[in-house]
């Protein structure tokens, strides 16, 4: 199929240089992080104390804040996404599903800074008056980060759940299952356990930031992607979380995440402790998110060897002689 003759040299050079550029960027950030670590030995960069006048530039508090914020908002956002995905796939009546789909599509395009701006003047006063504190806290930022991550995660789950549901619906209905039972007993267990949809060509909805390919373990891969996004978000924590450098103990405490740290420090002392802490924070974030992306690629690849080749063959064939979806149904029901 792939012949070597007639591969345009120019195009190939361009593609290779693009990927070289991307690789260089990644290496550059990681290297400057490592350099910061080497140069800042006396500054206890990984320490818990941030006290520039004493020469302590520890970013442990920010690492803690980043993890806390990301995990808490992921927990909320993932549940919301699962719920939305169920609502889209047979739980809610058609008009509600259409409305939700439209809303989620619009949500993918809402700029982060707009969410942040609206929340500063709407949610922050509500929390300040209702729960006390300044309103700029973990809770506020966490709610918004969770909300912002919902559409991406939902679209990933929805893509796979939709085609799994289509595959097994006929058999499940014939067995007398209600749509809700079908969803909860067959489709979701399959989606959680990791079964690549056979019909990989289901309509993949348009996900605003990075289209979602069909994942083989959609529930897990949505969580991985959502975690990466939640850790990496800069604007919402900067605008909403208060940015105090200390360990947060309650949801009403102010916190400063790694991303907020980078966006706030505009120091001109290049090579000083603050600057080194920035570099380290950047490299940490990059390593974190790159690890998640790689994990996600791996998840996607596990169950679909060369999807496009196989599907093309399959769609041309007639249906297999066995009852469609019966094997799948058995797989799901066993769990």
């Amino acid at each position: 199929m792939r012949q070597d003759h007639g591969r345009p040299v120019l195009l190939r050079a361009l593609a290779l240089s693009v990927s070289a550029l991307l690789g260089t960027v990644i290496a550059f950030i990681l290297l400057s992080g490592a350099e910061a670590l080497a140069r800042g030995r006396g500054l206890s960069l990984f320490g818990a104390v941030w006290n520039p006048s004493a020469g302590k530039f520890g970013i442990l508090t920010m690492i803690q804040a980043s993890l806390l914020l990301a995990l808490s908002s992921l927990a909320l956002g993932w549940c919301l996404s699962l719920g939305c995905c169920c609502a889209l796939n047979g739980l809610a009546p058609r008009w509600a599903a259409r409305w939700l789909m439209g809303l989620l599509t619009l949500m993918t395009a809402v700029p982060t800074v707009v969410y942040g701006f609206a929340a500063v003047f709407l949610l922050v006063p509500l929390i300040r008056d209702g729960l006390g504190g300044t309103g700029f806290c973990w809770l506020t930022a966490g709610l918004l980060v969770a909300l912002q991550g919902v559409p991406t995660m939902t679209f990933i789950m929805d893509g796979a759940v939709r085609s799994l549901a289509a595959e097994t619906r006929l058999t499940a209905t014939a067995l007398g299952m209600s749509p809700l039972q079908h969803l909860s007993r067959v489709v979701l267990p399959l989606a959680g356990k990791g079964a690549a949809p056979l019909a990989g060509k289901g309509a993949v909805p348009l996900a605003g930031k990075g289209a979602a390919p069909l994942a083989s373990r959609p529930l897990l891969s949505a969580a991985v992607l959502g975690l990466g996004r939640a850790v990496g978000d800069a604007l919402l924590p900067t605008m909403l979380a208060g940015n105090a450098i200390r360990f947060a103990h309650s949801p009403l405490d102010s916190m400063r995440t790694l991303t907020a740290h980078i966006s706030l420090v505009l120091s001109s002392d290049i090579g000083g402790g603050e600057h080194l802490s920035l570099l380290l924070a950047g490299a940490l974030l990059l390593a974190f998110c790159a690890a998640f992306s790689l994990l996600n690629l791996k998840l996607g690849r596990m169950c679909r060897p060369a999807v496009s080749e196989q599907n093309a063959g399959r769609s041309a064939e007639a249906d297999p002689p066995e009852i469609p979806g019966a094997r799948r149904l058995a797989q799901g029901a066993k769990s």
Binding site: V25, I26, I29, G210, V231, G232, A290, S293, N296
Partner: peptide, 14 residues
């Protein structure tokens, strides 16, 4: 794929 997952603030730092 990896680059798509990089937070934009890290790109600013770059």
């Amino acid at each position: 794929g990896v680059l798509a997952g990089i937070p934009s603030i890290v790109m600013g730092l770059f």
